[in-house]
Design a binder for these strands. Structure first.
Lengths: 362, 362
DNA sequence: CTGTTAGCGCATTCAG
DNA sequence: CTGAATGCGCTAACAG
């Protein structure tokens, strides 16, 4: 029924070994022979049996990209860029030696993150890219670190993109194996600091902050940057001005009324990402607040939608496309990471648009 | 180095076959034995070798979800819903018999679509879900149909979600094998028709249309619905009022000025999707056009961002989450599709918000 | 309910 | 440069 390597070999009048060699191209084969084999492959419409090949070679061409929320363009851009660097280069009709880059949506669930890692481990994945903030739970972190160590020990390349490097504090016994290949860390803290500085320069002193989920590294780092700026300016940090919630629109929408009831004197709101900021803007509209005249609003990430608000959002740009592409590269080729400890910093750039202005009452 | 089934069997004092049985749970095993095996598995930290298992069983637990643009929430929502119905149910710590649901981003490229299908075929994928509009090129359609037939023949379940059913016109010789498992067709045409009718009821007669890429089924169906409404109202269809472009924001932004220069008397613009509509709105703002007083704007899909425009977008709601979940279900379980020919229609509902109003000059 | 026996299809040694 | 032989780790009949 299904055509195998042996069938191709038979038709091409060569041994299975030779067919394998031309297919993998890792070995010298006479041109004439190669062509004969290739012809047989086409004629028979032969497709390699991946599992068999992976079993024999003890490696697969699967590359997993884990994301927290596939419906969020932040991850979509990252994953898309990584995937385009890895898999299926356009034009490769026959699907030669390409890797199969796939994205796995954890939905932000620690369990699913681990499950996906196990599934990928089971498949003997060639590489795994973990994107976005990590969950800061001691138990879970240890579990992930241990899992990654095992994956690495089994030859899987590991790239962290947008999350901090794993601690090398012996959390994972060296006996457990390999180590993370490369880490791309976003300058969340610095970006957030510059953003809040921008607001302070505009005269704002009562600034609300709509943070992400409490247990995420991204959330913490961005918030820390915010507090850094406040501290440097000699301003106190008022915890009641910070609200936590998911990285979504509704979170921003819910937050604004609550912030304003707590602190009616608020003149600016910083959202932990653009999506939340959109929610804040929507809520501001509902309340008849003009942006930036009555309220300055800022986001983070500089997603395409940041220019859909009225007015366009002041935010912090993360080079998501570049970072994703780089992650894809590091995951597949032997390119060594450049930074110390394999950690490459990714810059965050303040982008001032129209949603922030000098404090009202001037 | 790496622990195998045999190691577990040895430690649990049973045969490899028994271990396999408890792991797959498809066979009766004495509780005591099962527990002993499970304990050995934990102690040894055993992880199934996927390729070996797939090879022996001639099936894998991989489910591929193909999307046209992973950075587009339309696909993110669809894929996320499908994936959550398939893979890694939260709480399954050990990663038991779950399937590995992965999304593959074709970026709208026909070549990559085919390459991914080949890669999935190579992996002997358990199922493949193709989402979103199909490319209307005779050659490519035939290639895809042929590929799908082979996949189906090899036991892979095929679900089409958001694209029309494959023609059963003998394009693919029956000898080539199986057939599509199920198809979820979105009522793009009907939704588009109702949307334009809504505009006509408001008195608009000069309506611009910003369509998607010309060669996509989704594009064509939505445009047809628009024209249907026009025709039924006895209005002529003016091709110069239709512009084609990608399904993105920039497309809408570029289109409005061009439409207005062609037809300064335009009172409404229909965009082929919400993302394009956001671009149209942005462009309108730039030109100082008030929505809906000066210009009515409508979108399609009802993405979360449809409420981010000012004012909120009139659009057509597609139950993306439900459709994605249904696709995931059909792809994995033996649930038979309900409709004739395995085609289940997905309704499209007009959602009137504030971006459309009665024609100006009243 | 459990053990034994065979392969699954391919990538590698190793010889030629 | 090419062929023959071996085994990757697991599942699926068969017995028992």
């Amino acid at each position: 029924m299904t055509v195998t390597l042996a069938d191709v070999a038979h038709r091409a009048q060569v041994s299975p070994a030779t067919v394998s060699r031309v297919l993998n191209g890792n070995y010298p084969v006479a041109t004439a022979t190669r062509e004969r084999v290739l012809r047989a492959v086409t004629e028979l419409d032969y497709v390699v049996n991946g599992p068999a090949s992976s079993l024999a070679a003890a490696t697969s061409d699967l590359v997993g990209i884990l994301v927290n929320d596939i419906a969020d363009p932040f991850f979509g851009i990252l994953a898309g860029a990584a995937q385009s660097r890895i898999g299926a280069p356009a034009g490769a009709g026959r699907a030669g030696g390409e890797k199969l880059a796939v994205v796995c949506n954890t939905g932000g669930s620690p369990e699913r993150e681990l499950t996906y890692l196990t599934l990928l481990q089971r498949q003997r994945a060639a590489a795994v890219i973990l994107t976005g903030g990590a969950i800061e739970d001691a138990g879970h972190s240890a579990a992930v670190a241990s899992k990654l160590a095992k994956l690495a020990a089994a030859g899987t390349r590991i790239v962290l993109c947008g999350r901090p490097a794993l601690p090398e504090d012996g959390t994972v016994p060296p006996s457990e194996g390999g180590t993370v290949t490369a880490t791309l860390t976003f300058d969340n803290r610095g970006g957030a600091r510059r953003l809040t500085e921008h607001l302070l320069n505009l005269g704002h002193t009562r600034i609300g902050y709509v943070a992400g989920p409490a247990e995420r590294t991204t959330t913490r780092h961005r918030l820390e940057g915010h507090r850094d700026a406040l501290r440097e300016a000699g301003l106190p940090y008022d915890p009641s001005l910070t609200l936590h919630g998911p990285y979504d629109r509704a979170s921003g929408q819910d937050a604004l009324p609550r912030l304003l009831s707590t602190a009616p004197d608020l003149t600016a709101v910083v959202a932990a990402n653009d999506t939340i900021a959109l929610g804040v803007c929507a809520s501001a509209r509902t309340r008849g607040l003009r942006i930036p005249d009555d309220l300055s609003v800022a986001g983070f990430d500089d997603l395409p939608s940041a220019t859909d608000t009225v007015p366009a959002l002041t935010t912090v740009r993360l080079p998501l496309h570049e970072a994703g592409a780089r992650a894809g590269l590091l995951a597949t080729t032997a390119t060594p990471p450049t930074g110390p400890g394999g950690v490459e910093p990714v810059p965050a750039e303040l982008v001032v648009r129209e949603s922030t202005g000098v404090v009202r009452g001037g």
